[in-house]
């Protein structure tokens, strides 16, 4: 499995003093490989999340190409791309992303529920994930009863419930304490160890020790550190 980006550029229309175009990501090329945890760092507004959204099939680039196993993401229909994201990509978005009307277990099983799938075996795997992330006791609880760290761990479990080959994590430890931060990075590193390609977008230096590949971004341009 490999996910490759070539010459990715994203421009937004935005009124500024001299121009109405703003380049968020500028001609970025990169490859995410199986078994590697890639950390993408940069200051706020450097284009990290925009790049992650383009890589995960959520935002069409202005130019350039993203390929997954040789198939160009943005040449697929929305239905095909959505199904690919559902089965092959695990996305952990920024902030709290729980569906509040559903229980913790239902939130985690949501990628299956979307397509009317998921059986006892998948529920059993969900419990295994919850145990690894130390939220098993919250299986039937509603998101309103959970702390920020627990909600984040629930979002991680939901992203990886389908055992996706590619995992995208956007600021996964943004609002967590040190203990939770370490737990989350340990878990993501373990997933890379199990064969997934993991991309972590963060501005926290705590992520550096976990990186197999460290990238930085500034003003939409990508630099490889090591």
């Amino acid at each position: 499995m490999s996910l490759t980006a070539e010459g990715l550029t994203k421009e937004f229309i935005r009124e500024t003093k001299n121009t109405n175009r703003f380049t968020a990501v500028d001609n970025v090329s990169l490859t995410l490989d199986s078994g590697e945890l890639t950390v993408l760092m940069g200051r706020s507004g450097s284009g990290k999340t925009t790049l992650l959204n383009m890589l995960s099939g959520l935002l069409e680039p202005s130019s350039g190409r993203v390929s997954y196993d040789g198939r160009s993401l943005y040449e697929m229909s929305d239905k095909q791309l959505s199904r690919l994201r559902n089965k092959h990509f695990g996305v952990i978005p920024q902030g709290q992303t729980a569906i509040h009307s559903l229980s913790v277990m239902e939130n985690i099983m949501l990628p299956f529920a979307l397509y009317g799938e998921g059986g006892a075996e998948d529920e059993s795997y969900a419990r295994e994930l919850m145990e690894r992330l130390d939220i098993l006791q919250l299986e039937g609880a509603k998101p309103a009863e959970l702390s920020g760290g627990e909600l984040r761990r629930m979002a991680i479990a939901r992203a990886v419930i389908r055992k996706p080959p590619v995992i995208f994590a956007d600021e996964p430890t943004g609002d967590l304490d040190d203990e939770n931060t370490i737990a989350v990075f340990d878990f993501l590193k373990a997933l890379a160890g199990e064969g997934a390609a993991v991309l972590v977008v963060t501005h926290e230096n705590d992520a550096k020790p976990y990186a197999d590949k460290l990238l930085t971004m500034s003003s939409g341009r990508l630099n490889e550190c090591e």
Partner: peptide
């Protein structure tokens, strides 16, 4: 809106 954005992230199509 956020709930629907989350569903989109985890693989819901626009038609879905």
């Amino acid at each position: 809106r956020k709930e629907f954005a989350v569903l989109r992230v985890i693989g819901a199509s626009r038609a879905g």
